[in-house]
Design a protein around this nucleic acid. Sequence first.
DNA 1: CAACGGACTACGCGATTGCGTGGCTTACTT
DNA 2: AAGTAAGCCACGCAATCGCGTAGTCCGTTG
Lengths: 222, 222
Amino acid sequence: MIAPPDPVPPSLVVWLIEDNDAYRIAASRVIEGMRDVRAVRGFRSCEAALRALEAPGGEPPKVILLDVGLPGMSGIEGIPLLRARAAGAQIIVLTVFEDSEKVFRAICAGADGYLLKGSSFDAVRDAFDELRRGGAPMNGRIAKLVLQAFAKPAPAQTDYGLTGREREVLERMVKGLTKKVIAAEISLSIHTVDFHLRSIYQKLHVHTRTGAVSKAVREGLF
Amino acid sequence: MIAPPDPVPPSLVVWLIEDNDAYRIAASRVIEGMRDVRAVRGFRSCEAALRALEAPGGEPPKVILLDVGLPGMSGIEGIPLLRARAAGAQIIVLTVFEDSEKVFRAICAGADGYLLKGSSFDAVRDAFDELRRGGAPMNGRIAKLVLQAFAKPAPAQTDYGLTGREREVLERMVKGLTKKVIAAEISLSIHTVDFHLRSIYQKLHVHTRTGAVSKAVREGLF
DNA sequence: CAACGGACTACGCGATTGCGTGGCTTACTT
DNA sequence: AAGTAAGCCACGCAATCGCGTAGTCCGTTG
């Protein structure tokens, strides 16, 4: 219930990278009117914004609103470059795309938030508030995609009914050890390790060490 | 800009699972007063809520607000059970925990949203609106944790300078194929496949097939 | 142009692996 | 008490693997 003290200076420099002139100009005007926003600067492409960052002088941005579908370099490609050159800037993706493919590529590239253009400009204002509180602004439908992506692998959590010894052996096999070394580590004959190995093959439905290791790592067993 | 037509019936049955009596009662009262909420029912534990779901009659919940730190079964353990018995219910975690460990366990268990108790009750109302729009309610700080989790593995995207042939071989090794089979698939001598294999070992700093496969899968190369 | 390094192809040998087979102990069923 | 299933341990052999070694092609460098 208690709001933490405001850690962010009260005026933001916002950059807006968006190729649609009408949208960019309209959005700039609205954002400029928001409280705590000192300046808004618009760009038609990532390349243009990157050039501005290289140029001497000029105030560095605190927030970058970034479209994905841009001419030349896409917004997703631009994220790591912008992050490298604009230290401390929060990069918020602002786009129409809500297919999981693009969303995840943007998130993996290091976006600090993900908004949809379909929402009202209030969402942008709320996003600034969220950043100020130390959180990440994220559209609800995007959040749903993210949650679904996490929830999927959960049911695949089968341990294939491996016994204790079998898990011990498999764990060491994943680490790249040979049967001989494994046998020494858990004080067994190499033949016994081999037996457990074959039980593992049977339970995982593979017949090589590589197949077993691949499956074990993929299923998140180790 | 254009809001889609409301697809959700205008009255929600909300369940609140929370062991702190004072908080549960206070929250129930506030939530009951929200528009579109028809009824709120409180439980002290997952077990109690599960029993109520088994019992005949009674209205099934549309939204379940769930605490994590509960006596007996934890909220996280309860999520899959609640989901199985309350088809169609949206399960929203409502807790004080915001360490990534608990957050991710809850999300992997299949939560439809994640709110923090520290926020005002407005957040709960907003969450209901978000559900109605087909999105997932998520606290901004939780969203930040999620984004950071995704962004981390990205910089680890090194391909270790593998050549084309080496990638071909490694890809098939991950599938569990033997050298002989790999050689046949890409029309090479076993000896040549073996050479590429050793180059892979060197570049990945391993010296066994298992180690190479393990590393390749982990780094997300395949 | 010669020299050089990198990618690719190839051979042979000793060590390791995959598999058929069997024995032993514990625990639960009949 | 006998039966039976599961986990654990072990042997031996054919197939496979890890490694030292070497030749060819090709783009780059001096």
